[in-house]
Nucleic acid binder design. Sequence first.
DNA 1: AGCCCATCCTGTCCGC
DNA 2: TGCGGACAGGATGGGC
Length: 275
Amino acid sequence: MPELPEVETIVRGLDSELRGKKVKSLVFLSTHLKKKRAYSTLDPAAYRGLKIERIRRRGKLIIMSFQWQKGLIIHLKMTGQLLLTGSEQPVDKHTHAVMRFFGIKKELRFRDIRKFGLISCLPMNKIEEKILSSLGPEPLEIELTEFYRRLKAHSKKRVKSWLLDQKIIAGIGNIYSDEILFQAGINPERPAGSLSLEESQKLFVAMKSVLRKAIKFKGSSISDYVDSSGQSGKYQKLHQVYGRENQLCKRCQQEKIKRKKIGGRSSFYCPSCQT
DNA sequence: AGCCCATCCTGTCCGC
DNA sequence: TGCGGACAGGATGGGC
């Protein structure tokens, strides 16, 4: 479900509500999460009594750090949600984990219809290690020279797949890659290394501006994305290409938006504006 | 190196 | 109205 802007929105809400709170309990309700605990070295019960130091984002990962260098990594994958809910609200069948706190009525619930999401219980040093080894730089922090270097380092890869590769750059998913390429006027099937310096710069600027604006609008709610308070995002209203198959291009008003599978993902683009 | 495909799941939507 | 198939914001691993 969520890409960088959605995860950023969730994390900002959670950090402001939960930083400094002390955990009363962490419980996994579903066996699939416990099995995926293969990635974990700590027991959920070990978090009782620990104060939350910070909740932050890295790529699409949510990282919660606690006292005594303990941490959690949460990946929402396609349909995961983190919801701050009154404890009196009924728990539905898609809720797979619950964290309760001392001193507040609300609890944190992990919902996930398709069960792709995961929660790993790890010491912070293992988390740092994992992040360093598996994720590329942040799109909102990377500089142009490094961006350009990375385009050339994977020059045969199609630029759409390049944007989606978390090891190259972390946090962009299927919606925002299409929106970024549209804004940059670049065809998604161009090999990454074929972009001129000027085109690379256009892509770089488009990436930053699309993501910043999407964060400002609290992400895109396409099917079931909501933030931790249950609010929908508003950026879907500003989408220029994603989901607009056969509709007139908003830029040239001539061509119809095309839909094509690229790297197994539905991709939307204007064949005339994106070259 | 990089492509394609299947896989992990559940829900929805579309055509017949 | 029912049924089957395709599809969905992600990531991984195998085969070519």
